[in-house]
Design a protein around this nucleic acid. Structure first.
Lengths: 341, 341
DNA sequence: GTGAAAGCGCTAACAT
DNA sequence: ATGTTAGCGCTTTCAC
């Protein structure tokens, strides 16, 4: 039989409400009573029951974190642990608990989110991805439930939802320009999942850079695979089999790039001697690749941290307009890119 | 104003208790009433409020997951995402939600666990580590709160707490013997955190193998560092500076081993030509090392999955005796070990 | 088979 | 500054 607020009240000779006020540290309680009550609390080993508190407060101090359905694979990509670190840090600062989704398929996840929203398991939701035609975003809007997405929502909703993102267009443009300046003309583009906004944006930035440099875009140079080692390997096969294979590669993700490097090595193609490789994310392993990967650091941790910050705002004031934040990027030059002159 | 059980009751012309029974799918409700009530529920878009339910049931259907305090760094080690995958999978099967700890220091974590236990935020706890003199285990025992540890508890508590572990002694013995059989005599031991039980066990297995082979143990060959790239690098410096440096290395963790490989490469020492390296865990990146790491797969996913299974048993029947499970290991031979003959 | 009513542990008017 | 009281939304005896 656990100790309740009533037990404390009795022990301290006050009303339950007084105890409640002491817990909330209300200013309208004399410091003497506070002392007494606190003494009684610790003497009895009292601890507030969160379920009771949640029920009356209609909130749980929990944040839901939704990891994409590819999570079996997703968790293999260091991106997720890293965003999680950022989310965790801010959540902890704000005294929020984290409820992580465990669904394995899109349908399961949708059901789970629905449940956590409608059953009020959490006060807000962080979506760790965004892709075209995702049902979650419309659902959350319709329920007018606080949420934030890491990445960006579809164009028409840009002003309606809070999100934090990199400027992926600019990012892709930058890396492409870097390759261009190194003298490369034949630049392959190894994109990630085709439905992901980040992929679309990368493509746009890549195309812009080429256009601006007056280099025609070769459709054959555009390939799309999952952000996994295997994806990178397959992409290389596809690209290197071309009549005129590219001399440099823009790769959507470090992990993919590792696959790329590996396949290239197997083919006896030297990096950066014959082919240059540049990728995105700057996940830890990119440093350990051989050669160490030149990559664009997108500040993943910040992404998570900022997202949680925005989410908190929305929870505290649900009426507040949707806001967004752009996290910068920085080029980390290592040894996978070489000059073509 | 959310829809409550009362609204449904009114709509269906029954009492709230009846609705409750329908939710619980009680057998003592006529199927006709069930139909009616369910119709009313979906028509109104009713969803049970978990906080209310939790309050009366005195449970939350949540599992707490405690990640070690080194989590800033820990999350960098793919071990954690991988156990999490296992936990997640089983939790989802059993319809449990996951509440992950967000504390950054040992003290914060302890406070957090205390809070989640005493405030009944979760029904049980998974401890993702175990080290000597950890206060969490005694605390949870004292509170007689259901929990399970991944790894092993201190000897005296072995029968009191549920845990799932590898046979780390045997594992370390195996890898050491492998090196021995390849003709190595001078085998360095790069352990992880000194307080961790896994480290102690590794050390024991290593020593056993040497003893059994009649090879004297050289104290200088034993070094301990954090399970991180940097740790591996420093360890190599320490070991290679010895008058008679080892010709092979048993490394506590793949990530460390990457650091080892790297530092060795910088020193111009070839692997496996001059020095052989073998490690534990078989985390994805070990395959991508150059040379690809020979490592002992400890089935991390299984560890998490099994742990959750045991935890569930304890929650369902808190009186049941503590149980434990041992997860096997398999040697994954790749290219970082060579013969010495 | 179904309803009435009490109560899980807490908070927040409202009263004093 | 403190006590009284009425719920929060649900489950569960106990009636009938």
């Amino acid at each position: 039989m656990p100790i309740t607020i009533k037990d404390v009240a009795k022990k301290a000779n006050v009303a339950p409400s007084t105890v409640s006020r002491v817990i909330a540290n209300s200013t309208r309680i004399s410091s003497k009573t506070k002392e007494n009550v606190r003494a009684a609390m610790s003497e009895l080993g009292y601890h507030p029951n969160f379920n009771a508190r949640n029920l009356v407060n209609q909130s749980t101090n929990m944040l839901g974190v939704v990891i994409p359905s590819a999570s079996q694979t997703a968790f293999h990509n260091p991106f997720f642990p890293e965003v999680l670190r950022g989310i965790t840090a801010k959540a902890h600062e704000e005294k929020y608990g984290l409820y992580v989704s465990t669904g394995q398929t899109d349908r399961e996840i949708f059901a789970e989110v629905k449940e956590m929203v409608q059953s009020k398991r959490v006060d807000g939701v962080v979506l760790l991805y965004s892709k075209t035609d995702d049902p979650l975003v419309p659902f959350l809007i319709q329920e007018s439930f606080p949420f934030v997405v890491v990445g960006r929502p579809p164009e028409p909703l840009l002003t309606e939802v809070s999100y934090v993102n990199n400027d992926n267009v600019k990012a892709a443009k930058l890396v492409t320009e870097y390759l261009l300046l190194l003298g490369h003309q034949d630049i392959g583009f190894i994109g990630g999942q085709k439905e992901a906004f980040v992929t679309l944006d990368h493509k746009t930035g890549y195309a812009k850079a080429l256009e601006q440099a007056g280099v025609p875009l070769t459709e054959d140079y555009l390939v799309y695979y999952e952000e996994l080692i295997e994806g990178g390997q397959q992409a290389v096969i596809e690209l290197m089999a071309l009549e005129k294979p590219p001399t440099s590669l823009v790769v959507a993700d470090d992990l993919m790039a590792l696959g790329v490097l590996r396949m290239l090595a197997e083919m006896g193609i030297s990096v950066p001697g014959e082919v240059s490789v540049i990728s995105f994310n700057n996940v830890m392993v990119s440093e350990l690749a051989s050669p160490p990967l030149t990559t664009l650091d997108i500040h993943i941790y910040q992404l998570g941290y900022k997202a949680t910050e925005l989410l908190k705002e929305r929870i505290v004031d649900p009426q507040s307009p949707a806001t967004s934040a752009v996290v910068g990027h920085t080029l980390v030059k290592r040894q996978s890119c070489g000059s073509r002159r």
